[in-house]
């Protein structure tokens, strides 16, 4: 009897025995296995496991994933190159961003580390592209790249300007900014985006949380993580994908939600949404409680509702 046939036999006996009262199972198996003790032991062990019902397979995969993705109990990273880590600023799918200082210079930086670089070439490629994009952009309103290297195990990282500030919309709310002040800030953002476009870079994820206003009132554009170089536009499969899956729906352009080719108009559209929010105090479309497909239809086919007449602006 080959292994597959044997496994069928084991299962037959298991299914027959599992419906019998426990007191009758052993007698049944003794008869059914006809002296094959290994077979009998195998079926009995399965019956016991079935009764217990406590194996890994009964557990929630999420719980398991959490354990497996956690670290192995050693102390966390303390230093990256010449920098000492102060704390974690944020973490996402791609990696972790740390606040760090350089003791000899006393300066603060934000360091982005690609987590689990081994996982896929696409991730390493995307991380490297973000770094290249930052290196290429040199503008007072764009957080700049300072330094980049790899950790001893090959994990890539780069250090960039640490921006302490509030998201654009929140800043304006907190400071009860006038329309004039809002427009001034927006103009500074638009100029930075125009500069990036001049460098053939599309940001593709413009939204208030990526546009910070510092205490001194200057703005900084952050997170070129899914930015695109215009030259690589022929790689349509890639750009469509990345654009689709990583965008933030509320600020996404019709071409992004439809998975079509993006251009500088994509950023201009997102800036329009930000401007709308800055002036009206809410988003042009309420996409909450909608499925992504419904949201996409609204973004692609609808006009924003007219402003309420009482909002005299």
């Amino acid at each position: 009897m080959n292994d597959s046939k044997r496994w069928k036999r084991v299962q037959d006996l298991f299914h027959q025995a599992v419906n019998l009262p426990p007191s009758e199972q052993l007698a049944f198996l003794k008869h059914g296995c006809a002296g094959d003790d290994t077979l009998q032991a195998e079926v009995l062990a399965m019956l016991e496991e079935d009764e217990r019902g406590e194996s890994l397979l009964e557990r929630n995969l999420g719980e398991l994933a959490q354990h497996v993705l956690g670290n192995d109990g050693r102390p966390p990273l303390k230093e990256i190159g010449p920098y000492q880590i102060t704390r974690v600023l944020g973490e996402g799918g791609m990696g972790v961003v740390y606040l760090a200082t350089r003791p000899d210079l006393g300066s603060h930086v934000a360091i982005k580390v690609l987590r689990d670089a081994w996982l896929s070439p696409a991730r390493r490629g995307r991380f490297a592209r973000e770094q290249q994009t930052l290196a290429q952009l040199n503008h007072p309103s764009i957080a700049r790249l300072y330094d980049a290297d790899v950790l001893p195990d090959g994990t890539p990282w780069f250090a960039m300007e640490y921006v302490k500030g509030l998201p654009l919309t929140e800043y304006c709310r907190c400071h009860s900014s006038s329309v004039d002040q809002r427009l001034r800030l927006f103009r500074a953002v638009a100029e930075a985006v125009q500069y990036a476009h001049g460098q053939a870079v599309i940001h593709r994820d413009l939204k208030p949380s990526n546009i910070l206003v510092k205490d001194d009132g200057t703005v900084r554009l952050l997170d070129f993580g899914i930015a695109k170089q215009l030259e690589s536009f022929d790689l349509q499969a890639e750009q469509t994908m990345t654009g689709l899956r990583l965008m933030t729906p509320a600020y996404a352009s019709p071409e992004q939600v439809l998975g079509q080719r993006v251009g500088i108009g994509t950023d201009v559209y997102s800036l329009g949404v930000v401007l709308y929010e800055l002036l009206v105090g809410e988003l042009p479309f309420d996409l909450s409680n909608l499925t992504p497909a419904e949201g996409a239809t609204i973004i692609a086919e609808h006009e924003p509702s007219h402003l309420p007449p009482q909002s005299e602006r």
Partner: peptide, 15 residues
């Protein structure tokens, strides 16, 4: 060689 953050809930048995 590196660990990024505090354990999410270390559990070698799960591995």
């Amino acid at each position: 060689t590196i660990t990024f953050d505090e354990a999410l809930g270390t559990n070698a048995t799960s591995d």
